[in-house]
Design a binder for these strands. Structure first.
Lengths: 124, 124
DNA sequence: TATACGTATCGTAATATTACGATGTATGAA
DNA sequence: TTCATACATCGTAATATTACGATACGTATA
């Protein structure tokens, strides 16, 4: 049953809290999401390690980074979710690699954003 | 006075919680921080709006984005902190502009990261 | 089949982020 | 001096992120 109290709680649910994604364009939400996945030194390290090795398995990363196996697995999942890496089962292990096609797509999206003319009026 | 309990609490402080920045290189922490500042659609929108207007004042943004003034101010602060925008007092208002030099620096740091050879061994 | 190994997932504690109202502060106008 | 306007800061609620131990799950080997 809905009381005065429930309505307050419901309203709070909608007005409080975190990112109001619905007020932004799909494009900006997407770009922000790409940035977000790269916004952690562990994930930067993982990508860099894969690039340097030209391939990898998850267990290497546990020793390499000094994080718990569960944590590494969680970071790998986030990278996998946006598609920047892909994994294939290799016996008992999983081999993770950069998806070069997706990597280049991201590069394009970022450079499109940064290659804009940022000329400003003489007000600052 | 330090008791057995305090040590447990202290240990928890160090092993639980959030990002273990101390285990990563300065370079990766820095790169992650840059990505993080851009990892929100509001901040993308703010930057894009400033670029499109070639200048701006904060109050414009409140109408433009549909966020509370306090929230906009908070996002502007984060952008200001990494130096990508700069503000100057213009009468009663504050005029925020892109810092073109810093913008280009960021562009370089990002493209250095993305322009790497990501050739992978044929394992995936 | 049983065991070991590598990884994923679950549950959860600590902490960070996002958003807003309320309030503080500085500047220009009355 | 007083008031209005524009913005910053504070306090805080809701939620997201990060990290880890425990445990589940799948594959290879004994």
């Amino acid at each position: 049953m809905i009381s005065e109290n429930n309505i307050v709680i419901l309203r709070c649910y909608f007005i409080m809290g975190t990112t109001k994604t619905e007020i932004y364009s799909l494009e900006y939400n997407r770009l922000a999401l790409l940035f977000k996945v790269l916004a952690h030194p562990a994930r930067i390290s993982i990508l860099q390690y894969i690039i340097n090795q030209h391939a990898c398995i998850c267990n290497d990363l546990v020793e390499e980074l000094g994080l718990a196996q569960a944590t590494i697995s969680q970071h790998l999942k986030e990278l996998k979710n946006i598609g920047i890496i892909k994994g294939s089962i290799e016996g008992k292990s999983v081999c993770y690699c950069i998806d070069e096609k997706v990597w280049r797509e991201f590069e394009n999206e970022f450079s499109k954003f940064f290659n804009q003319d940022v000329l400003v009026k003489k007000c600052c």
